[in-house]
Design a protein around this nucleic acid. Sequence first.
DNA 1: CAGGAACGCTAGCAGTGCTAGAATCCGTGG
DNA 2: CCACGGATTCTAGCACTGCTAGCGTTCCTG
Lengths: 190, 190
Amino acid sequence: MATGARRERERAEREQAIIAAARDLALAEGWEAVTTRRLAAEIEYSQPVLYSHFKGKDAIMAAVAVEGFAELATALASARASAADPRQAVADVAAAYTAFAEQRPALYDAMFTLAVDLPFASQGVPTDLARGFAELADAVRPVAGDDDLEAVTETFWSGLHGLVTLMRSGRLRRADQDRRLAVLVRCFSR
Amino acid sequence: MATGARRERERAEREQAIIAAARDLALAEGWEAVTTRRLAAEIEYSQPVLYSHFKGKDAIMAAVAVEGFAELATALASARASAADPRQAVADVAAAYTAFAEQRPALYDAMFTLAVDLPFASQGVPTDLARGFAELADAVRPVAGDDDLEAVTETFWSGLHGLVTLMRSGRLRRADQDRRLAVLVRCFSR
DNA sequence: CAGGAACGCTAGCAGTGCTAGAATCCGTGG
DNA sequence: CCACGGATTCTAGCACTGCTAGCGTTCCTG
């Protein structure tokens, strides 16, 4: 009778395998290489199995994005925790953010560029997204008069997001990224 | 013999019709609704005609983006020209930028999110893109110590781009956009 | 008016996300 | 130990995508 529990566990493992395969494939070859057929081949099942776990390809991408939000939050947290002083914290958090986007471009795309609507109504995202947002907020708190801390944080976040996306799409020269980061950090510290 | 000139003119008109159809369709129903079949039906020709004008669908989107860069540049220019003082110029240019993105979302996507590489190697874009960039630079010039005016401008641009894209994808509440814009403008004026 | 070339169309390819229905496996009761 | 029944998985296919080869027509030229 406990066979049902095993089945359920195996199902969960397979679901995780799908997410991992999608993530790895996207990181290695970009999201355009992630097709349902390749995904199915990767996990050694047929295509329809994917649809018994997720509503569609978008839902798979959303699941990958959810993992990304958790990773980003912890990356920001460790950057802020190891900063010497509040001033440095802003710079370190900003550097951690851009480094995350640079090193996991496909993950960043899933989180912010593709899969527009799905994850935000779901369960796991708001938590991890809020965690990351809170790290940014704590970093810029000294500069904000408390009432509009939220607006300041969101603007700081937008600045980072803009730097990352414009550079990744070739609109900004990669070489000057540090200088631009310094300008942004100067705006949001002191 | 002058018949060749007419043919060429008709060809140019048809090419413009393709770009206009793509643009209108994208603005009305989004880029996912722009298929080569619908585009062909819209201009009342068969699909292969599209490929005698453009290398592929991406090239059509790039052509639409090129028009967008010209429009954005003139919008920014007129905003800056009609500003009372330098301080106000930054705010007005920022407002014009976000208004452009808000009112022509599909156009903005073609310029910055989709069609990643094509237009920048081509002829028309660098000019109009540089025009828009110059408007931003002139607006923020007072705040920059001349040497890194470029970095300051690029960072300002990134901030605007981040605000626009994060809000459009639902990551930021639309209601607080004015407050965020004010924060950004404060950073880049005085 | 005949020859020829430029032109646009029909038809089709390979690939996409997704799904209906057949086939197979597996735990259960006789 | 075997046959049944339900869940699970696969095969085959649909409608659509971007794109292209090759045929038919049209129009200009000599």
